[in-house]
Each structure stands twice: as C-alpha cells, then as structure tokens.
Simulated assay, not measured.
Amino acid sequence: MRDKKFKSKKHGLGGFRLTGAIHIFDRAIQLPRLGRLRLKERGYLPVEGVQILSATVSERAGGWFVSVQVEREIPDPKATYKPVVGVDLGILALATISDGTRIENPHALKRDLGKIKRLQRVVSWRKKGSANREKAVRQLVRAHLRVANVRKDALHQITSRLATLAPAASAGGTKSAVVLEDLNVSGMVKNHHLAQAIVDVGFYEFRRQMDYKGQWYGCQVILADQFYPSSKRCSQCGHIQATLDMGTRVYICELCGLMIDRDLNAALNLEQLTTGSSPESYACLRQYRRYRCRESVSPGYQAVLVEAGTEQQSTCE
C-alpha cells in the first residue's frame, strides 16, 4: 500500500483546475467552491462571445493567478496585400525591422542580476528551516518572477506589433508576411561569453509567439534557411563578405562602399529574400553555396524559404 503524501505549505500549492459554474465580471470572478473573488487586474479575462470551459488557479511567488480556458470561434483572417518585412533578432537590439524600426532589448536578467546574486547569498547565509530563510527565499522568488515578467512583456509587445500592426507609423494594416531567421540557438549558447545574453533574449519564445499569432491575424511567418548569409551580404549590391566579426556593428561593403547598420542590413536581406527586389539576390545565393562546398567547411545549403511549422529541406548544388 502506497503511503499518502499530503501537500505541504513549505513547498507551495502549485495549481488546481476547476470546472462547473464559472462567471466572469468586470472586477471579480466567481469560481466553484471558492465563491466570488476580486481581481487585481481588470478587463483582461474574456467575457463576450466565449464559452467558458474551466479555470486554473495557480500560485507563483506568493501571488495568486487565474487563467480561464474558453472556446470561441475566430473568423478566418482576410487576405492582405501589405509589404513583406524582414526581422533580424539580436542581443543589443531585440529586433531590427527592415523599415528601420529598432526595438530595444530590455535585458531583463542583466538588469536585475546583481540583486538576484545578493538575495541568493542572503538565502545561503540563513539557517535552514528558519523563518528568516523562508523570508529570504520569498524575496528571491519574487526577483526571478519579475525578470520573467519583464522578458515576457517585451516579447508579447513586439510579436503582437508584428502580427497585427505595421512596424512603421506611416503604414497601416497587417503585414502579409514576416521573414525570420531559423536560428540555431542550441549551437549559439555554446559560446560561453554570450550564452547568458542569448538565453535572456528568448529567441525560441519569440518564434513560438509569432507562429500562433500569425495564424490568428493572417500574417504568414516565413523562416529563412539557417545558412543564409543575411549579415554578410550587402543589401544594395548583393556582394557577400568572406568574414564578418561579431564586434563589427557597421557593415561596410567592399564592392559598392555601402555603410549601414549591421542589423538593419540583415533585416533588409531577409525582406529581399522573399520579394526578390534585388536582381543579384539569387546570383549571390548560388555563389554562397559554391563557396561553402568548395571550402568544405560544412555541406553547402540552398537558402530556401520555409513556412513556420513545416519540414525544412536543404540541398547542395
């Protein structure tokens, strides 16, 4: 016979799910067995045109949160004929859009890392099982929760802006397609000098949000091939530089003399990959494939466009 394991107040309650008669009001929510509870945040739970299925109550860092599962019919998005934009993700700037818009990176972890380290030392100094240790643990958990919330808020704002609104203030309407790079995040974090900064950005979460928000609002999310030289290629003449250091923030073309921000140049190349606005775009891709095969660094890959969620295939000429 298995021993019963009772819940402990020391380790938190986690969360629980409720079904039945659930009613949502402007400033409160009524749950089964709990009654009517006031909400600190108002106006974010769906009320009209939805069928409420269940509610999940969870506890994080001493705060209680409720999420509601609803069923709602979403009409098919209307076809749009707005221009395509390329988006280059980075560490210094969270996203650089091909129309010149630059979204700054909040650096959520870097900004509060000193505070987190100090709170972690306080926890290690306190005696295990004491009330002071529990108090220090709660402060540490709240600091980690703040970092996660700042990062999540920044990602939701930029992904919603790309999927629903035009990046430029002069333009209007939903973008018909957003071109992103298929980043190898697992390989990027092997660089121990940049691993913490890369993880702090949240590249995978950015792509995940763009996938489902694009389906909601009719914005097609396209992934460029992982080996497409968006940073090394000149967005004006199509020339590809052999090497480009990570510290070089201004791209200077050796052929035409173009001087442009490195991230903006990459975003423009991603946009041209779909629109074909540059006559040298396809020629430079063939040149890059031959270069990779000739150098035998790794197999040459064709820079192809892959819709998010589909299987990607790469070929060598």
Rank of each mutant, 00 (worst) to 15 (best):
K232G: 00
K190V: 05
R290G: 03
G300W: 02
L162Y: 04
S160G: 11
L223P: 01
F203G: 02
G238W: 10
E311P: 04
T174W: 03
G86H: 00
Q157V: 04
I158V: 15
G276Y: 11
Q313C: 08
S98G: 09
V199C: 10
R161E: 05
Y288D: 02
T274M: 14
P167K: 10
T56Y: 13
L268I: 12
I252P: 00
S231T: 04
C256R: 06
T243H: 09
S186I: 05
S130K: 10
D112S: 12
K5H: 14
A93S: 13
N265E: 09
R111V: 14
S124L: 11
L34K: 05
I260A: 03
R292I: 04
T274G: 02
S230F: 00
P279S: 15
Y251A: 02
K127F: 02
N184W: 03
L18A: 07
L305M: 09
R286G: 14
T101S: 10
A55W: 01
E71P: 04
N191D: 11
L180G: 01
E307R: 12
V189H: 04
V304G: 05
M210W: 12
L264D: 01
H192E: 06
K4D: 06
I74M: 11
L155S: 02
V199M: 15
T274Y: 11
D112G: 00
N184T: 07
G129M: 15
L18I: 06
Q312L: 13
Y212E: 07
S314N: 07
R17N: 10
G114I: 06
G238T: 10
K135F: 05
D3E: 15
G276A: 13
L244M: 06
G202S: 11
Y228A: 03
K190T: 09
K175C: 08
A61W: 11
I198K: 02
E205D: 15
L13Y: 14
E254I: 03
L119S: 03
D99L: 03
A224T: 00
M188Y: 08
I252N: 08
Q241G: 03
I240S: 00
A266F: 00
Y217C: 08
Q287A: 12
L162I: 06
E71M: 12
T315R: 13
A166M: 04
N105Y: 11
L140R: 11
R38K: 15
C253I: 03
A148Y: 08
L94S: 04
D200N: 14
V304T: 15
L155Q: 04
T101L: 07
R60H: 14
K190S: 06
G12Y: 08
K5Q: 14
A177R: 14
R17H: 08
A266H: 01
G43K: 09
K5V: 14
T164Q: 12
A242W: 00
F206A: 05
K10A: 15
S235Q: 05
V141E: 14
K152D: 14
W64M: 15
